[in-house]
């Protein structure tokens, strides 16, 4: 199924258009994305380190995880919403970007990893609440930490490999499609604020 018309629809939405025409909305979304991911990853790490037996060893595993869970989900909701909104500004480019697709794949694996943990180790949490988590709980925690670090890396690469690019049918990519050289010389910062190209993301 070709989703290109749907992606085009997202790009043409008034929200996406407003963001593209603003010099400050896109970086603001990036900042919100980082603030919310700090909340999400910070609280996930607290739980993962308890499961791995590297921190909070004496505390109830159930309490450690349940009390931060709300904040993890609040963080996730804001990360997902800000991420999706950034996606709509240049949907067809992101949808064909390798780093972006890898990031989505990693997120899916992280979701499955979490589901497996809930269906296995967490079912028996009463038995290991005050002691070490079972091997499958530790494995899930280690995998979780590695996956989220990889997600951050992939996400940063998305910014570097999509900046200044436009969907092909709209305009052929110019020789300076990737403004990485601008980034190096600081030239991008002096670009006119209302540039027609998608907001610079570096």
């Amino acid at each position: 199924m070709d989703i290109t018309p749907w992606l085009k629809l997202l790009e043409d939405s008034s929200v996406a258009t407003t963001i593209r025409n603003s010099a400050y909305l896109f970086p603001s979304l990036e900042a919100v994305h980082v603030i919310a991911l700090s909340l999400m990853l910070g609280t996930i790490t607290v739980v993962d380190l308890r499961l791995l037996g590297l921190a909070s060893k004496g505390r109830s595993a159930g309490r450690v995880s349940s009390e931060v869970l709300t904040w993890t989900w609040i963080g996730f909701a804001v990360v997902a919403l800000s991420g999706f909104t950034m996606f709509t500004t240049n949907a067809r480019v992101y949808a064909h970007n390798t780093a972006f697709l890898i990031k989505l794949g990693l997120l899916a694996v992280a979701g499955v990893n979490m589901a497996i943990f809930h269906l296995t180790a967490e079912r028996t949490i009463d038995r290991w609440d005050r002691t070490a988590a079972p091997p499958i709980g530790k494995a899930a925690a280690a995998l979780s930490l590695m996956l989220w670090v990889a997600v951050v890396f992939a996400g940063r690469v998305v910014g570097f490999t999509t900046t200044g690019q436009q969907a092909k049918e709209q305009a052929p990519p110019a020789a300076s499609a990737t403004n990485f050289d601008d980034f190096l010389t600081g030239g991008a910062s002096s670009a006119p604020p209302a540039a027609a190209a998608p907001a610079p993301a570096k």
Binding site: V34, S38, L39, G42, T43, T45, V46, V152, R156
Partner: peptide
Amino acid sequence: IIGIATAVGSAF
């Protein structure tokens, strides 16, 4: 960014 998440997460 991972450093930011660690610092802000801990401060939180």
